[in-house]
């Protein structure tokens, strides 16, 4: 936009190769935040997926996590093979960030790898260092399969509807909403989640509903006990996935009236 921003892009790329670990981490985040699509930035981020310098006490790779997230946001499909390699990283959160980034890049080439992680969760040699009771970031994997339209995953994902972690059950409902014709059934599971006593969970379900755009959830979303900003985002998702070319129907007007009441 202006020379000030150019300078900062230069700086961020330089920082990624510098000695200051904190600055590297921040720069990776920054390049994603501003969706910097410059070749050198993308190369620097891909390089950062292999970083060995920045380790948490438990063996995690913070820079790799941020780089994977940034590459998802930057949106260049050529990095898909690099992100697929990250699905086998020993750090749980790198695998999670990679699955989320692959979902954003919408390239079905990664579906077989995601399916394999779901079918054989213990196949990665080192389980999560910081979440020992989960072998895989199941919610991120399931959400990616749903967005990527992987109908072959329906059977496997259905088995997660009963998972002990609520977040994962809702991810399964969200994906099955996208992958099957039984939309009302799975939409209603998510609506029930909006009434969970756990605020974090209600926030997560709001994001799920925004992602799938289930019209039947508009009023329950508006009634949810959560921040207006998150409810508005969910309603925006519903509105935009039900918009005809000339915008106005009784349904879309109803959603906008709800949004207006939350401004």
């Amino acid at each position: 936009m202006n020379t000030g921003e150019q300078l900062t892009i230069e700086q961020a790329i330089a920082n990624l190769a510098g000695d200051d670990l904190g600055l590297r981490l921040y720069s990776a985040w920054w390049l994603g935040r501003f969706r910097v699509r410059e070749e050198r930035a993308i190369q620097a981020l891909v390089q950062a997926l292999q970083d060995e310098d920045d380790r948490t006490p438990n063996g995690g790779y913070p820079l790799r996590r941020n780089a994977a997230r940034a590459l998802g946001k930057v949106g260049d499909g050529r990095v898909v093979p690099h992100l697929m390699e990250c699905l086998y990283c020993e750090d749980f959160y790198v695998r999670e960030a990679a699955a989320q980034a692959l979902e954003m890049l919408k390239d079905p080439a990664c579906v077989p790898s995601l399916l394999q992680l779901l079918a054989e969760p213990e196949s990665v040699p080192h389980p999560a260092p910081e979440l020992p009771y989960l072998a895989q970031p199941f919610d991120a994997i399931i959400e990616a399969l749903g967005t990527l339209g992987a109908k072959e995953a329906v059977g496997l994902i259905s088995s997660y509807l009963e998972h002990e972690v609520p977040r994962i059950r809702f991810a399964a409902a969200r994906a099955l909403y996208q992958l099957t014709t039984d939309r009302e059934r799975y939409g209603e599971i998510l609506i029930a989640g909006l009434r969970s006593p756990d605020l974090q969970l209600r926030r997560a379900v709001l994001a799920d509903i925004g992602a799938i755009g289930y019209l039947g959830a508009a009023q329950p979303v508006a009634d949810t006990l959560a921040e207006n900003s998150l409810k508005l985002l969910a309603l925006k998702g519903i509105l935009e996935q039900n918009l005809p070319p000339d915008y106005l129907t009784a349904d879309t007007i109803g959603v906008m009236n709800l949004m207006d009441s939350l401004l």
Binding site: E240, Y247, M256, M259
Partner: peptide, 13 residues
């Protein structure tokens, strides 16, 4: 952003 465009159409109506 489609939601902004939709709201403009609604305001005009």
């Amino acid at each position: 952003v489609p939601a902004v465009r939709a709201r403009i159409a609604y305001a005009q109506q």
